[in-house]
Amino acid sequence: MKKIVIIDYGLGNLRSVRKGLEHAGASVVISSDPSEIMSADGVIMPGVGAFKDAMKNIAGLLDTIDDYVNSGKPMLGICLGQQILMSRSEEGGETTGLDLIRGEVLRFPHSDLKVPHMGWNSITMNQKHPFFEGIPDNTYVYFVHSFYVDTGEKNTLASCEYGKNFAASIVNDAGNVIGTQFHPEKSGDTGLKMLRNFVAIC
């Protein structure tokens, strides 16, 4: 059984991610212990809340995260957990991120559209990746966020339209760090399939 560690840095409801992964057949540990993280087959970077708090809470794990990512094993960042993979964010004043993927996190501009972008929206696949194996184009997934990731084509796996086109899912150059702005663990059967795909590549 694959061992997946959900990095616990004090933010967010980890229960549904955990249940989703268990549903996908993984053994799940929620931990902030570096040795646990390094021994994992796959790591989840969860997160809801504010970018600055997330970076502050995770400060002690930066070397561990680098070592883990350099080992080539898969990591999945979800929602804010995706955003902190980026170089920087404009949320709460300019804040530096993990810089695992080049790009920045921006707020949706003020317009007629509601912010947060909340609910089920369809995503367009831009690149093939085993994470999206068997997932049809234009599938619906659940979003809730006020900031979005702005990155290059090369690092965009899937995109979504909400007033503007933004990255719904991203990948690093090496292909082992992926992120989703949406919540697979809240996206019904489609999301569970993605979590199964993730466990399969771990």
Binding site: S16, E185, S187
Partner: peptide
């Protein structure tokens, strides 16, 4: 419910 239903 949360153990079985994966929507918000």
């Amino acid at each position: 419910t949360a153990n079985e239903v994966f929507i918000p």
